[in-house]
Amino acid sequence: MITAVIVDDEALARESLLSMLKLFCPNIEVVGQAHDVQSGVKLITDLSPDVAFLDIQMPDGSGFDLLMNFNRITFKFVFITAYQEYAIKAFKFSAIDYILKPVDPTDLINAIEKLSETIREEETNHKFQTFVDNIKTNKNNPQKILLKTLDELVVAEVGSIVRCESQSNYTIFYFTDRPKIMVSKTLKDFDDLLSDSGFFRVHQSHLINLNFVKKYNRFPDSHVVLNNDEHIPVAVRKRDVLKELLKNLDKNRFVF
């Protein structure tokens, strides 16, 4: 049985979540509820739950502020927010679980399934610290990304990623400042995540950081040359889009 607490300033929201947990997640036992940051900190300190469901906006602060009260986070947490755009990018880049209000049963069940996985305390703290760093810089354009390999959790600067390459259900990341790593997610996952941060999927197997493109050769075979002199193929249907993206990136740098 997983013990949990709910911290939300709306009594109706707390009761609704409690009912849904009882109905859809019988392995979760809610052992306490709190209505703001201060009472939430006390509740977690007193009860030491396995997981905390945290509202973002509360009268005396946020769910983030609550977590900042702990030197080490020894419990798992899920943010619950009514604001679809608020910090969502930072959540995704930091691999932090969140659920949008009104809570959908499927989203809740998926979040609980993730919580059931073995997650080390160190990983939880890495996730939150990465999230805090992203929020402090710009939640609409996160600067750090958390990547999980088979052996470790890697926190990397988004700007240091040169390219990503598909390998079956895994993705190989290439950096400017560290050896390559293999991450246990598909290239599509990272295409969706990084496409608004200066990355473009030029080929079904390749996602590149446009800032590292040195040259784009369209003939005889379409490919880009990166700053490290790697040649990456460009799919036929991607050629025109890539051309426009590079023009917008630096009109004086590329000649077509």
Rank of each mutant, 00 (worst) to 15 (best):
M1P: 11
V5G: 07
I6V: 10
D8E: 14
R14T: 00
E15M: 10
E15N: 12
S16H: 11
L18F: 11
F24G: 05
N27Q: 09
I28G: 03
S39D: 14
V41F: 11
L43V: 05
S48Y: 13
P59D: 15
F64W: 00
K76V: 01
F77G: 01
A82R: 14
K89E: 09
K89D: 10
F91I: 04
S94V: 02
I96K: 02
L100M: 12
L100W: 11
T106I: 15
T106Y: 12
T106W: 10
D107M: 10
A111P: 08
E117S: 04
E121M: 12
Q129M: 02
F131V: 02
V132Y: 14
K136R: 12
N141A: 14
P142M: 05
I145D: 00
L146A: 05
L147N: 10
D151Y: 14
E152W: 07
E157W: 01
V158N: 00
E165I: 06
S166C: 08
S168Q: 14
F173L: 03
D177V: 05
R178L: 03
R178P: 04
K180A: 13
K180H: 14
K185D: 06
T186F: 08
L187G: 02
L187W: 02
F199V: 09
N211H: 10
D221I: 13
V225T: 09
D240Y: 09
E244Y: 13
F254S: 01
